[in-house]
Design a protein around this nucleic acid. Structure first.
Lengths: 79, 79
DNA sequence: ACCTTTTGTTTTGTATAAGCAATATTTAAT
DNA sequence: ATTAAATATTGCTTATACAAAACAAAAGGT
């Protein structure tokens, strides 16, 4: 079982599935499938995706569930 | 087209295909196929391989050919 | 409002490639 | 030479990735 943050990073950058698909030379359907089901693409696809997001593969895909991004931000100081 | 350093790191650690296969829960044949042909496993496999080598996926797999490891070492000082 | 047109997402069906089991072959050691 | 260990080959099942079509949601025009 595999987890990914494709949807997160895609929407964060205001990209549609189609736009991302064009950037990584994949079909929009494949992006969609990737985002909704949890399935394991080839490393080749993973590397291309990581490239456009300027991230490591390990930051995009994981064997364990990702923590919420918000939990990784620094905590607000008390007023 | 994808490139990997599986054979390199496996032999460096004195592992047989079978031993590595057991560590990453794959078939020895799959390891062999991976090492000789250039083919693209699932990210799931890639992540498991990276884990046993304690490396990032990006250090194990690449879209571009890897430079020789020797070229990445520092140069011998002139005597 | 209604009807197009456009854009984005999902579903269905199919071809290709990943991954395995079993067998064959090679290599090493004694 | 014989055994054992490691690697390679063959055939098959399953899943990835695509093409095409269906569906959904906005945006424009009358």
């Amino acid at each position: 079982m595999i987890h990914n943050r494709i949807a997160l990073f895609r929407t964060e950058r205001g990209l549609s599935r189609k736009e991302l698909a064009d950037l990584v030379d994949l079909n929009p359907q494949t992006i969609g499938f990737l985002e909704r089901g949890s399935y394991s693409p080839s490393v080749e696809c993973a590397l291309r995706l990581a490239k456009v997001f300027n991230l490591s593969v390990d930051a995009l895909f994981s064997l364990k569930p990702f923590p919420a991004l918000s939990s990784q931000l620094s905590v607000q100081k008390k007023s």
